[in-house]
């Protein structure tokens, strides 16, 4: 816990917020989209459990853009 006190929350908090936005947006997109590359359920787990990278991965390769 000592570690957490040394952090500058004014700088860290915005990152949490935009990460949360990313998470929400990827879920909205996932619920709207018809088909993904690979099973949809898999993407749900990737988005939830792989912090930061998960939603980005979904947008970059999970979305079918053709």
């Amino acid at each position: 816990m000592e570690l957490l006190e040394g952090l500058n929350w004014g700088l860290i908090a915005p990152l949490f917020i935009i990460q949360l936005i990313l998470l929400i947006v990827s879920f909205v997109d996932l619920s709207r989209i018809e088909k993904t590359n690979g099973p949809k359920l898999l993407w749900v787990f990737i988005i939830i459990f792989v912090t930061i990278i998960g939603p980005i991965l979904y947008f970059v390769i999970g979305r079918r853009n053709d």
Binding site: L15, I18, V25
Partner: peptide, 27 residues
Amino acid sequence: NFKWIWVPITFILLGVSEPLTSYYLPQ
């Protein structure tokens, strides 16, 4: 398709992680 949201956010996270990790590296 939310590109206007996720691409800027990705770029923020990519760039900002650098000063943060080098600053907090000792910790």
